[in-house]
């Protein structure tokens, strides 16, 4: 299934390769938004999300503990580490998706200055400020391509047709999908290939103009060509939106992220954040011995 989709993906759209996806802007943007080496954690645009001493547990099982981390605004922060070390749990804590799965979040998470778990915060309103992309492409199967893109706007009460159209088109442009789907906006979303579906999900997340985009291993179900396109898109979007990217692929983290946060399993099988910093610095000269072992084992 996935292989077939990939074949049509490359076959049908090979004109949209990396060079032509964004014209001349892409490389330029990537360079501009990269944090100068040596500069400390604070990003050029301040901090979008702050996690302070966050621990997450499911029943008796503690998934991850004592995470203190800042996501610099309009930069890509990669959350890397072996599976089961709580990266995804941390990501899902930011938009309160644990509310429905029985996960308990301790500590403080702030979106800008807003306490995410504050008593007067309405989770739905909070989530409308944060976009999320999941491991497997999950467009709404009963909706058309365009209805998928604007579904978030409709959930949030936007009813003006002109606005919906304008913002939907903008999101499709932003996700580099417009040229591919412009002639079949009203076809079912499942007709798209796997990689295109994932970009549709990104467009759907971008349509609500999120301040933060959470991406949970967005390429894990995709082939290399589709992966390259998504990575290109991530680079393109950094500088416009804050991105938290969970990945177990160190090469991917090195390619697309400005900052990297390394999670490892502690001795008692509980996930921990062991090191965080600019990508180049963490990969070249890790300060923590465990990071060094992990990074050299996977990259070096």
């Amino acid at each position: 299934m996935k292989q077939n989709d990939a074949a049509t993906d490359t076959g049908a759209n090979h004109e949209t390769d990396q060079q032509t996806l964004f014209g001349d802007r892409s490389g330029q943007l990537a360079k501009e938004s990269r944090v100068p080496a040596g500069k400390p954690d604070a990003g050029a645009h301040g901090t979008a999300v702050t996690l302070d001493d966050v621990s997450i547990s499911f029943g008796d099982h503690v998934a991850v503990r004592n995470v203190t981390l800042q996501l610099p605004a309009r930069e890509v922060t990669a959350l890397v580490g072996p599976s089961g070390c709580g990266k995804t749990s941390v990501l899902r804590a930011i938009n309160r998706l644990h509310d429905h799965t029985g996960g308990v979040v301790r500590g403080t998470i702030r979106l800008g200055s807003l306490d995410v778990y504050g008593t007067d915060v309405q989770p739905e309103v909070l989530r409308s400020r944060i976009g999320m992309v999941f491991q497997k492409p999950n467009p709404f199967p009963t909706m058309s391509i365009f209805d998928n893109v604007i579904s978030g706007l409709r959930f949030n009460g936007v009813r003006n047709k002109r606005l919906l159209r304008e913002m939907g088109i903008a999101a499709l442009h932003n996700a580099a999908l417009w040229d591919i789907v412009k002639d079949r906006l009203h076809q079912p979303a499942l007709r798209l290939s796997g990689g295109q579906q994932q970009r549709l999900c990104i467009a759907r997340a971008l349509a609500i103009e999120p301040e933060v985009l959470l991406m949970d291993e967005p390429c894990s179900a995709l082939d290399p060509v589709a992966t390259a396109k998504i990575e290109d898109l991530i680079r393109h979007l950094s500088g416009e939106v804050t991105i938290a990217l969970v990945t177990h692929n160190m090469f991917q983290a090195a390619r697309v992220s400005d900052n990297v946060a390394v999670f490892l399993l502690g001795e008692d099988r509980v996930g921990e954040l062991v090191e965080v910093g600019p990508t180049d610095r963490v990969f070249d000269t890790p300060s923590d011995a465990r990071t060094k072992a992990y990074v050299t084992g996977h990259v070096g």
């Binding site: 400020r129 949030n156 009460g157 301040e211």
Partner: peptide, 20 residues
């Protein structure tokens, strides 16, 4: 982008009571 963002935020905040 800022204007569009404001539209969504505003709509989400104003409609949440009705939606709930």
């Amino acid at each position: 982008v800022a204007r569009r963002r404001l539209v969504v935020r505003d709509s989400a905040r104003r409609s949440i009571g009705r939606r709930r």
